[in-house]
Write a protein that binds this DNA or RNA. Structure first.
Lengths: 252, 252
DNA sequence: CGAATCTTTGAATCCTCTCAAGTCTTGTGG
DNA sequence: CCACAAGACTTGAGAGGATTCAAAGATTCG
């Protein structure tokens, strides 16, 4: 079985300093082309978007907690956020990883106000836009095809969940970790970065359902084979061809 | 690794006789209260809903194929449908199980017409409503809050996917199968039925990522302990208290 | 710098898979 | 309707992989 949360983590008594980064400037936003506001005329609706603020959440801080009333949607501008479900026995499983331009907490948008389904925890220092529910109800009235973009986000979330099933929960320990690394490498490539934002072993464990020790061993073997190389705290340089050939290998 | 599809299955050359069951009668529909049309005034929009037909798909037939253009949405009225992803190496993984009142193929509704993400295969003879895309585009115009209900369906699908991750892909072989049985038992209970609609071992395997033999062994042990008992083809009588106590046990 | 946390590594055990053979079911055609 | 073939399920034995426990090395943070 997986690892349990400590008391501290469960209560989240620790104080994180979440920095306010100012009003969001949707007009100049670099990631907007891929997010839920992609097709919105932001100039036309600037008074509605007015109430969106931008924050910086440090590593390990919580965007929201499973079971709390869903009140805000967060759009990730940078960093990595995990959605984790805590079982009755206290063990934790990550159900998806969300990356820049993903929206977190879209349960908020269901008509009968729901509770958040998971904990949303920041893995790598994240800059996010916090969007109150009111923005959505106003936009819904002002821009009737707005929900097309929200539906796309639901679709992306399903993709992310399916990825956890198909890629990170199927096959040998070796294969699962390899696929995760390729996934992270892909994400860093599209960001134009040649290094992986490495997850902690604890998180890889909650994502793949593999014991921490086994993960450490697999990573060690990848390093031995020069597929990975530590290049800083939480950063790894990767050998793209080597890694991808690993995951292609299981063809046939 | 998982089992591969046979050539026959990949090509779906076999002919299934899909029976036309007539026009859908949304007015009298017994499952509507839980599906995407829950809050729709069907009398008011009956001319739009006119083009919905009802079909009976036999076991093992395909609603649609992964990669084909998404053209119709199907609402399940009875039976069980699996969504399975076929990897490049031909192995199959079920990413979710869909039950009565779920909609299948909602990728159809994304504005840039998408391809179906998975194969949708009928596991237990299913009666479905086939809803062409046009119905949705008309409803969108006619009933502005219609997308609230569609969003709920996306949410249900995410729940189903998360369930596969948390319950069916985490923990020991024994636990995963036990949770699946409880899930099926719950579903049969809400249908007012005291027997499980049992999946084939192949499908349990694709759902849990467990080898067929191990599943057989676990089921055998449940039968020995009088938690299960065959009560017909593809049907099992279950011991609710026994099964649920199994999945609760891993508390603490 | 030292404490706490996270990661690595080893060795033994346990679990799950694989292979293989047998039994049971289902469906088809004579 | 029976017989046979194909497919699905069961069971055993053995091998291999993954987990566990334990202890030592690294890192991080105050």
């Amino acid at each position: 079985m997986g690892h349990r949360l400590t008391d501290l983590q469960l209560r989240n008594t620790k104080c994180f300093d979440i920095k306010w980064e100012g009003r969001a400037d949707c007009q100049l936003c670099s990631i907007r082309k891929n997010d839920i506001f992609a097709k919105l005329d932001v100039e036309e609706h600037k008074d509605i978007l007015n109430s969106i603020s931008q924050f910086n959440y440090p590593e390990k801080s919580l965007l929201y907690r499973q079971g709390n009333p869903a009140v805000d949607v967060y759009v990730i501008r940078s960093g990595i956020v995990k959605l984790e479900e805590v079982s009755t026995d206290g063990s934790v499983r990550i159900v998806r990883l969300l990356l820049p331009s993903n929206a977190v907490g879209i349960e908020t948008l269901l008509d009968d106000r729901q509770l958040y389904d998971q904990n949303a925890v920041v893995l790598r220092g994240a800059s996010v836009c916090r969007i109150p529910y009111s923005v959505f109800s106003l936009l819904e009235q002002a821009s009737p095809d707005f929900y097309q973009m929200v539906m796309k986000e639901w679709h992306r979330q399903l993709d992310a969940a399916d990825r956890v099933i198909v890629d990170f929960s199927t096959g040998s320990v070796h294969d699962r970790v390899a696929r995760l690394l390729v996934y992270l490498a892909e994400a860093s490539k599209t960001r134009g970065c040649s290094e992986i934002e490495m997850l902690g072993i604890e998180d890889i464990s909650a994502l793949t359902s593999i014991s921490r020790e086994s993960i450490s061993r697999v990573l060690a073997s990848f390093k031995r084979n020069r597929l990975l190389e530590k290049s800083g705290p939480n950063r790894m340089r990767y050998n793209w061809d080597g890694l991808t050939s690993l995951v292609e290998q299981n063809i046939g």
